[in-house]
Amino acid sequence: MPENNDGTTRPALSRRTFLKLAGAGVLGLTVAGQGLRILTARAESRTEATTAPIGKGKRLRRWSAVIDLRRCDGCQSAGTAPQCAEACIRGRFLPEPMQWIEVYEHELPGGGTRFMPTPCMQCQNPPCVNVCPVAATWSTPEGIVLIDQRRCIGCRLCMAACPYERRFFLWGDPPLPPEAALVDYSPVHQIGAPKGTVMKCDFCTDMTSSGRLPYCAQACPNNAIYFGDLEEDLATNGRNVVMLSSFLSNNGAFRSKEDLGTKPRVYYIPGQGQDVGRSPFTKGLKPVEWPWDKTTEGAKTWKRSSR
């Protein structure tokens, strides 16, 4: 061992060598980490169903929804719970108490209420995507925010970040009916997601990309929900086809919590159900029901809050 002036021994490993070794170690770990990442990445699942370009060109769908509040009476006239929410629950096997599209009753300044069906806003500046530590939630090129529940670690930072409260957690094992076993898991429909992960409205892009309307739009008895493509500038509620841009402009459309800068893809036409004969002073909604506790053995569900 080398000696210092005062007679003490100096370690064989000098500072210079140590720093070199440490640098090489860090570099090695980084390379190994990236290699592991490439080996374990499951990129194919992220893009499959949603990014297929339309036609021959490179045009991409820009999915959006328009909800005509003039035609929404919270299903008061039908005498049922909001059918958009119930169809969504049945179509996506949502456990209680999830309502990916939920009809909220907002107070009007002059008294009375209006109903606002509220799906995921599919923000173009999505706070949930911005905070996710593992890129388990991401924006597709078509503008839809999806979740890969095989990667989600369940930290719920996205739920804290979402200003619309449109994210839901699988607090326990969801009670899935037998038919749910017929589909393999995909982030596009989220059926089969394990407990301890986050779920949300996916705009039913598995259906819209094959020309069908999402469950909520199909189910609305008043045809209040339009789905469309900003790129093609068309939208339909299943009965009428409208030119999306002029439909929004001519009817004074707005977006929810616009001032937050989240840039939603869901637009609302102001109204309180007047086009389907609702008075704003007829208040109240029927509660939504989940059929699974009757159809699935040993289903364990939970409530919205502790009590």
């Binding site: 369940g154 994210r167 957690f169 326990g172 301890g196 364990k300 919205r304």
Partner: peptide, 13 residues
């Protein structure tokens, strides 16, 4: 699962 805690969607932490 976390269903055994008092946390739910509205108060998730």
């Amino acid at each position: 699962g976390l269903v055994v805690t008092g946390m739910r969607d509205r108060i998730s932490w």
